[in-house]
């Protein structure tokens, strides 16, 4: 035996680039804390203001519950319609963006670029763009949710498609199947449970986004919330927040139970 055997050390010294990154990160973190102008006085004032808000918000005011509920219903509809259309559009986009199903590398890069852009630009900015293009109201909200859902789902669908084992596709290819046959017969069925899981996540995410979209005028309960805050009707605002909480939690429970059944 002329091979060198040595026991691996307990700890390894980090490499130079890692140390460099750590220094930069620490510097930025400290600068960030300073920038927030954290001071003892501000924290105390903040806590007092918060208590004041809670004090004037309790108990939640159910006076306008019917109009708040109908705004919540609109939010739910925006999320549902936007997510369904977004998921349906995500599938072909994901197929074009995956290396094992894209017809040509250039198409894959274009699709990936488009998906990244949809994901990287925050939903509030999309909402502002759509409010300018189609006017105030739920349509702007739906369009925003569609774009947001494609940015999220197409990416995860495509990751799943790329992970799918080659074997079953090869087995279908060996029967003389066309590319469409292979994709519809092997890739889509094998990815299906994951697609459903991702879509349910997307819907949960869409409900949360749709709530906020109203703040910039893209329909739904956000408008009510923003008005209640501006008018300093904090008890009404709390009512709205409670309603949002109930709906979001309800749906999260429902979606996780569906996911468990399918996967």
């Amino acid at each position: 035996m002329n091979q060198h055997t040595s026991m691996p050390p307990r700890f390894k010294l980090p490499k130079l680039p890692a140390i460099f990154l750590l220094v930069i990160f620490t510097f930025l973190f400290i600068m960030g804390i300073q920038h927030a102008q954290l001071s003892f006085e501000r924290i105390i004032n903040g806590i007092i203001n918060m208590l004041h808000f809670i004090g004037s918000a309790f108990p939640p005011n159910p006076e306008r519950i019917t109009s708040i509920s109908s705004a919540m219903y609109e939010t739910f509809q925006i999320a549902l319609v936007g997510t369904v259309i977004g998921v349906v559009l995500s599938l072909p986009v994901a197929l074009l963006a995956s290396h094992n199903t894209a017809p040509h590398p250039s198409i894959r890069w274009i699709s990936r670029g488009a998906v990244s852009a949809m994901r990287t630009i925050p939903d509030l900015i999309w909402a502002l763009i759509f409010v300018i293009s189609v006017g105030l109201g739920p349509l702007a909200g739906i369009l925003t949710i569609i774009v947001d859902t494609i940015g999220f789902c197409a990416r995860f669908f495509s990751e799943r498609i790329e992970e799918i084992e080659k074997g079953p596709s090869q087995a279908l290819q060996s029967t003389g199947a066309s590319q469409i046959g292979i994709v519809s017969g092997a890739v889509l069925p094998l990815g299906f449970p994951s697609f459903v899981g991702t879509s349910l996540f997307a819907f949960e995410k869409s409900i949360r986004s749709a709530v906020v979209l109203g703040l910039v005028g893209a329909g739904g309960i956000g408008v009510e919330l923003s008005t209640a805050f501006t008018m300093r009707n904090f008890d009404e605002a709390l009512m709205i927040i409670v309603l949002i909480l109930v709906v979001v939690i309800l749906f999260e429970q429902l979606s996780s139970s569906i996911r468990k059944k399918i996967i």
Partner: peptide, 8 residues
């Protein structure tokens, strides 16, 4: 490994 579409 058979290569069936296992969930069909």
């Amino acid at each position: 490994n058979f290569h069936l579409i296992y969930n069909l």
